[in-house]
Amino acid sequence: MSAVLQPRVAPLPRTAVAQLGRLAIASLHTELALAPKPGLVTPFDSGSHDDMEAGTFLRSLFALRHYFSDIAHAGADDAPFDVLRRHGIAAEAAMRHATGGINTHRGAIFSLGLLVAAAAACRREGLSTSGAQVCLAVQRWSQSLQDAPLDAASPGQRARARHGVAGVREQAAAGYPVLRTLALPTLRHALATGLTRDAALCHTLMTLVAELDDLNLLHRGGRDGLDWARAQAAAFLAAGGAFAPDWRPRLQQLGAAFVARRLSPGGSADLLACSWFLLQQEAA
């Protein structure tokens, strides 16, 4: 009896893989350039951060430019999760070397890296490249994600354990429901109804802040700080968000209040960059 032949998957062109890496870096740069962003670093101020400014982020992005291309190639080659993890560990070391030990992009190295690999895998397998499908494709590594060791000493993991909330690992293992059901629909709607790119991104950022158990907010402000930030974001949205004509000065005023409390929604910012990447890669 002849063996059953398995369908062959055509190799993904290297130019298409490299483009995913470039889109990832461009998405992180788009998030950095966005303003106003309460508590977060922009080209105009350092938000609630004393140890970093826009230049720190730019040095980090330059150091990470090969990482996103490498992890795209790993996804296109159907590499096991351990290969992706090694790429991420090396990327974090490169980031810290470039920034003098400052954590600018650790969350993005994890989440955006997985999404880049998943986007490449979807292309290789001829699957839909919709943002939602790419998020779901991350579930192919769910078991490995749950089995991988945690860095219990990291501020985010300490906050996660102290307050009993889910983190990015759980989001990834579930196929990033916060991106599929909240961030991407919000961003699509804002753009489709005529908001500028920056207004749509700011509106989406505040939608994430209002709903997410942001570990950076928990680390900096505890449960009270998180609850305060979520309430402020919800009030901004209830008043029209970026659809209101006075949204920019209101968001700038809110930013001053975040800085006064030393609060920074870094987890929400990472997911905003992921959302922009997911939209951009659909057309790639």
Results as ranks from 00 to 15, higher is better:
residue 132 A to Q: 13
residue 269 A to R: 06
residue 13 P to G: 10
residue 52 M to I: 04
residue 182 L to T: 03
residue 209 V to L: 04
residue 183 A to C: 09
residue 217 L to I: 09
residue 41 V to S: 06
residue 143 Q to N: 08
residue 117 A to Y: 03
residue 243 F to V: 00
residue 250 R to A: 14
residue 279 L to I: 09
residue 66 H to D: 12
residue 101 G to H: 08
residue 46 S to W: 02
residue 17 V to A: 12
residue 275 S to G: 12
residue 20 L to M: 07
residue 207 T to Y: 01
residue 89 I to M: 15
residue 4 V to G: 05
residue 73 H to K: 10
residue 65 R to E: 15
residue 110 F to V: 03
residue 213 D to H: 08
residue 36 P to K: 01
residue 172 A to T: 10
residue 44 F to W: 12
residue 257 A to C: 09
residue 271 L to F: 14
residue 62 F to A: 12
residue 124 R to D: 12
residue 277 F to I: 03
residue 59 R to H: 09
residue 249 P to E: 14
residue 241 G to D: 05
residue 279 L to S: 01
residue 161 A to K: 05
residue 183 A to I: 06
residue 228 W to N: 01
residue 241 G to H: 04
residue 186 T to S: 11
residue 166 A to G: 00
residue 250 R to S: 09
residue 32 L to M: 09
residue 130 S to R: 10
residue 112 L to G: 10
residue 266 G to C: 07
residue 69 S to I: 10
residue 103 N to G: 05
residue 10 A to I: 01
residue 222 G to V: 09
residue 210 A to C: 07
residue 95 M to C: 10
residue 259 V to Q: 14
residue 53 E to A: 15
residue 44 F to A: 11
residue 83 V to S: 13
residue 15 T to Y: 00
residue 84 L to I: 13
residue 242 A to N: 12
residue 274 C to P: 11
residue 223 R to W: 02
residue 223 R to D: 07
residue 204 T to K: 02
residue 74 A to V: 09
residue 89 I to R: 15
residue 149 P to Q: 05
residue 189 H to Y: 11
residue 144 S to G: 04
residue 153 A to I: 01
residue 260 A to N: 08
residue 87 H to W: 10
residue 70 D to E: 14
residue 105 H to V: 06
residue 204 T to L: 04
residue 76 A to K: 03
residue 242 A to M: 03
residue 64 L to I: 08
residue 172 A to C: 07
residue 282 E to F: 13
residue 72 A to K: 01
residue 190 A to D: 02
residue 139 Q to R: 15
residue 144 S to M: 05
residue 108 A to C: 14
residue 65 R to A: 15
residue 282 E to W: 14
residue 155 P to A: 07
residue 85 R to E: 11
residue 107 G to A: 15
residue 217 L to W: 04
residue 161 A to C: 03
residue 56 T to W: 15
residue 178 V to Q: 10
residue 185 P to E: 01
residue 16 A to M: 12
residue 145 L to D: 01
residue 124 R to S: 13
residue 140 R to D: 03
residue 22 R to C: 02
residue 44 F to Y: 13
residue 178 V to R: 07
residue 39 G to Q: 07
residue 150 L to Q: 08
residue 103 N to V: 08
residue 201 L to H: 11
residue 184 L to Y: 08
residue 71 I to E: 00
residue 9 V to R: 10
residue 44 F to R: 10
residue 204 T to C: 15
residue 231 A to K: 04
residue 207 T to Q: 13
residue 195 L to C: 04
residue 130 S to Y: 00
residue 176 Y to Q: 01
residue 282 E to N: 00
residue 61 L to T: 03
residue 138 V to Y: 01
residue 88 G to D: 07
residue 196 T to M: 08
residue 281 Q to D: 06
residue 140 R to Q: 14
residue 23 L to D: 03
residue 54 A to C: 10
residue 2 S to W: 02
residue 87 H to G: 00
residue 211 E to V: 05
residue 163 H to I: 04
residue 70 D to Y: 00
residue 57 F to N: 12
residue 218 L to S: 05
residue 193 T to I: 04
residue 211 E to R: 15
residue 119 A to R: 08
residue 64 L to S: 07
residue 227 D to I: 02
residue 23 L to N: 08
residue 190 A to L: 00
residue 103 N to I: 06
residue 58 L to N: 04
residue 171 Q to P: 00
residue 268 S to W: 15
residue 76 A to C: 06
residue 80 P to Y: 14
residue 160 R to M: 09
residue 200 A to W: 08
residue 268 S to Q: 07
residue 284 A to M: 03
residue 197 R to H: 11
residue 144 S to Y: 01
residue 133 Q to P: 07
residue 219 H to M: 01
residue 51 D to I: 11
